[in-house]
């Protein structure tokens, strides 16, 4: 049942040996019932992401980008359609089974960083490792803190860190468990242009060395253009556009 390790299929690999799909969406729709009408947020989205690919989901505000990301990561259930995540049909799994599927294999980076406020930088990175039951949690956390250049800030809590530093901690936390897929929701949305650019550099650099499949939501064209593929959403309808 477990799909092959994506590390065997580097992103730059040629199409001759086709890597397996890690995320697949079939006729994916999401509708929300309000008091007097039904709102369609996503409509019949089709998507297939291979191991090691980098996909940008773009679109205007309210076009359904974050909703799609949430559905693909198994954080929510679609109104209709199927999602296959790492070879598993999510509609066959309940909430807890989906959580188990994510544990240690899926990483997240959020626009609002989502660091635990009372925990130090190091402890924030430790959390997913502890959750995944890694015995080498502390060493790995220290290693990833070093990779993002914040070893000196290990004992600092999020409120003592700048926005850029907080996002670097969040990225270290996302990579710490060696996930097969990394979902990033507007990772530069809360940062100024310079800091954002540095964060993107870091994200791509780490992703390249870890060979992780990266799916990121952004409305930043410059960022989207650095990705291999781009899925553009307009009012819930998705279309793949060529990367410039």
């Amino acid at each position: 049942m477990t799909p092959p390790d994506s590390a065997q299929f580097p992103a730059e690999s040629s199409s001759a040996s086709q890597p397996p799909s890690v995320v697949t969406a079939r006729a994916l729709s999401q509708r929300v019932s309000t008091a007097d009408s039904t709102l369609t947020i996503l409509s019949e989205v089709e998507l297939d992401v291979k191991a090691g690919e980098i996909l940008a989901i773009t679109g205007a505000s309210g076009s359904g980008k974050s909703t799609l990301l949430g559905l693909l990561a198994g954080l929510d259930q679609p109104s209709s359609g199927d999602i296959f995540l790492l070879g598993q049909n999510l509609s066959e799994l309940d909430e807890d089974a989906r959580a188990r599927l994510r544990a240690g294999r899926i990483g997240f980076v959020f626009q609002s960083f989502q660091l635990l406020p009372a925990r130090s930088a190091l402890e924030n990175i430790l959390l997913p490792l502890e959750l995944a039951g890694r015995t080498d949690a502390r060493e790995r956390a220290a290693h990833w803190l070093e990779r993002v250049g914040l070893t000196a800030r290990a004992a600092h809590t999020p409120r003592q860190l700048s926005g850029g530093e907080q996002q670097r901690i969040a990225i270290a936390r996302a990579f710490a468990t060696d996930p097969q897929i990394l979902f990033a929701d507007e990772p530069t949305g809360n940062l100024d242009a310079d800091t954002g650019a540095r964060i993107i550099e870091l994200l791509f650099e780490l992703n390249a060395s870890a060979h992780t499949t990266l799916i990121l939501v952004t409305h930043d064209d410059a960022l989207a253009s650095r990705c291999q593929r781009r899925l553009h959403l307009i009012a819930g309808h998705a279309s793949e556009v060529a990367v410039a």
């Binding site: 990561a73 954080l75 909430e95 807890d96 959580a99 188990r100 599927l101 994510r102 544990a103 240690g104 294999r105 899926i106 997240f108 989502q114 635990l116 959390l127 997913p128 959750l131 995944a132």
Partner: peptide, 16 residues
Amino acid sequence: YDQAALMRCMGATTAQ
């Protein structure tokens, strides 16, 4: 709530 949501996101089940 945020902490719990984050842990669920990272794979923690309700039982855990």
